[in-house]
Design a protein around this nucleic acid. Structure first.
Lengths: 379, 379
DNA sequence: CCTGCTTTGTAAGGCATACTTACAAACATG
DNA sequence: CATGTTTGTAAGTATGCCTTACAAAGCAGG
């Protein structure tokens, strides 16, 4: 069962052989099926531009690999031979998804390609966990879910906080206490299935893009213990020169304000110090706190930091994935207002700020998408 | 003479046929030649991974089209049959490049592929020029230079201020008074050669990337009458949802400062109001002005605006293309200091701020690169 | 009911592309 | 001067998509 080309390998600066063309076209068929749903070979041919003959050949290969299945004939809607529907095996293929970004637990699920959860596990994080203890906990969680699979397992996807290299090495994740942990290799050796590891905010952005209906340029902000962001440009993840794209928690904002908070990093007025969940919660519990004013203020700080980014990238879609109790309409409206007032100029920029659907599961869904992308080329 | 595939057409979501593969490999050969200089067919085969046989075939086609020429045998450096060097016809192929971003003139040049200027023309802009007068002036400038070509002309590249769509329509360019001018189509109809039109800052960024030795992620800031930026991520231009990426002139910064300037757009503290050439010049000529303090202050404003962008994208290379008399070391150091102090956190970010080589000609060189990219796939 | 039309899916043969193998040409070196 | 090395090309093979042709299976109208 050869791994289908990832889209990045198609955009590469390397020579193209006939077999590469076929891989590209296979991915094209898979994408069409994933986003278009069950359809006939003839439908697929029209969707991809390939001929019926070629499409049939590709589908035959995919059926042979167990990725695509026939779904019976379509209730005929006109003249002609009735079509046989084919589709991705959305329930027969399974993926293990891990979300390591929780404040006090590791969360994982066994899912099918629809994102339906077949099994779920949570592992509490110990308060003073060592790096290797954390690794053992994550490996155990993954193994448990891999063993729960009762059908073909495509792979394991992991969304982790921190800075993560392209080959799945966690370069630094202070929240977990990791530094230079080759998590992907480690899990793959332990489990014997393909593993892909990525930053949690990046995973969430990919989930929103692939599973939702969004612009190809998409910014997703995640607020938890820290503040992180995932950014897609033309559907492609922006990783940055040192894999640290999206690390905006320590940009100072309003650092001259009288109430500017000091940050754990030593600076004053870091975005994280204004709006992270612990800091915001603490501010709200202070004596005589004006809840709405505090939330509005926090939202405004986020808007101010995002304004240059949104202007520079000409974004129109900003998603805030965070606990809705804190980051609800008050916060979001303030952020949006401030963002718009700071980006107006003569631009047509109509920035939309919104909350993602099912934000609770968004990192798990992102981990699923990462596997779909690396194993099947779907994005 | 078929137009060679642009790299963007290779990354498309369309089916791949054998001929597309060949086009891709042709581009690969051209890129290797462009960046590697004259070499033998065998060298090229090693550089691209293609076989000598295939490489010879591709080169034969390129020689047939007059894009590549043989440059004689190499002074032998070892045993074996001496190699015949081939190279892009760097002096026999010409390009017309236009820079419309000047404050009081349109500037154009006939160049060879090395960027050497063969002919140069400047057209003064009238102070109260209408849209159609400006169009006529640009068409005349282009025609003049096209007629000056004494060898094969690859095409015409235009770097223009303003917001420009992918198909070369100037959606809005307040400085020139254009709105919805289909400049690419217009010039192509008039001149009968391929034309490509792009934003001036984007052109400059492409010049720096393709002609210099930079990271694939690159931000270039242009300061003139306004402030604009060109951004490359993985060597690909970021255009934004409405083609307005890089329009950062009207992001407010330090708007609460006592000396915050008001902007023509009606807001207060727009970046452009702090650092644009006219505004900065005016500030320096004010009674009792402290030149260094003003320049440092302006630089700091730029650094503050860029900090969220640099953090979000994890950039390491920021280029400032502007008049060196105003935007020299004082300005640049202040910008860099402020940028670093606003992005430090725990990131390894070593942001380098620098001035491009030959910044006077950078838009012309960018226009050249745009033609190379669209006609030959070189980037 | 039957013929004709439409659509689906497959089979056979052709074209394009890159690869492998083989070889001639030209030069350096011992 | 023979040998080995490198370059560049020729001939044949493998892969992949295309075009053309056709069987299968249904609807529609006479």
């Amino acid at each position: 069962m050869p791994r289908i080309a990832s889209p990045s390998s198609a955009r590469t600066r390397e020579r193209v052989l006939p077999e590469h063309a076929r891989l590209h076209n296979l991915v094209l068929v898979l994408r069409s099926l994933f986003h278009g749903g069950a359809m006939s070979r003839a439908d697929l041919a029209r969707a991809t531009g390939l001929t019926r003959v070629t499409t049939s050949g590709l589908i035959a290969e995919l059926i042979g690999e167990g990725i695509v299945v026939e779904k019976g004939t379509r209730a005929s809607a006109g003249p002609g031979k009735p079509a046989v529907l084919v589709d991705l095996d959305r329930v027969g293929l399974q993926v293990v998804a891990l979300d390591l970004s929780g404040a006090d637990e590791y969360h994982g699920a066994l899912m099918d390609l629809r994102g339906a959860v077949i099994a779920r596990r949570r592992v509490r994080r110990e308060s003073e966990e060592s790096s290797s203890q954390a690794q053992a906990a994550v490996v155990g969680l993954a193994r448990d879910l891999v063993q729960a699979a009762d059908s073909r397992l495509l792979g394991v996807g992991v969304g982790s906080p921190g800075v993560i290299s392209e080959d799945g090495v966690v370069l630094e994740a202070p929240n977990i206490g990791w530094e230079g942990v080759p998590l992907r290799q480690l899990l793959q050796d332990e489990l014997g299935v393909p593993v892909v590891v990525g930053n949690d905010a990046n995973a969430a952005a990919q989930a929103e893009y692939t599973l939702g209906e969004t612009e190809p340029d998409l910014l997703l902000i995640r607020v938890g213990r820290g503040v992180g962001a995932g950014l897609l440009i033309r559907g492609m993840l922006v990783t940055g020169t040192h894999h640290a794209a999206g690390e905006i928690g320590h940009v100072p904002v309003g650092e001259d304000a009288p109430d500017a908070p000091s940050c754990a990093c030593g600076n004053i007025g870091c975005l994280e110090a204004w709006i992270s969940v612990p800091r915001l919660t603490a501010a709200l519990h202070r004596e005589g706190a004006d809840r709405e004013a505090i939330l509005r203020g926090a939202g405004a700080r986020l808007g101010t930091v995002l304004a240059p980014v949104v202007s520079m990238l000409n974004l129109s879609d900003v998603v805030v994935a965070a606990s809705p109790t804190l980051f609800g309409d008050i916060f979001l409206d303030a952020a949006g207002e401030n963002l718009r007032s700071h980006t107006l100029g003569r631009s047509h920029a109509e920035v939309r700020m919104r909350v993602p659907a099912e934000s609770e599961e968004i990192v798990l869904r992102g981990a699923l998408v990462m596997v779909l992308s690396s194993e099947l080329g779907i994005s």
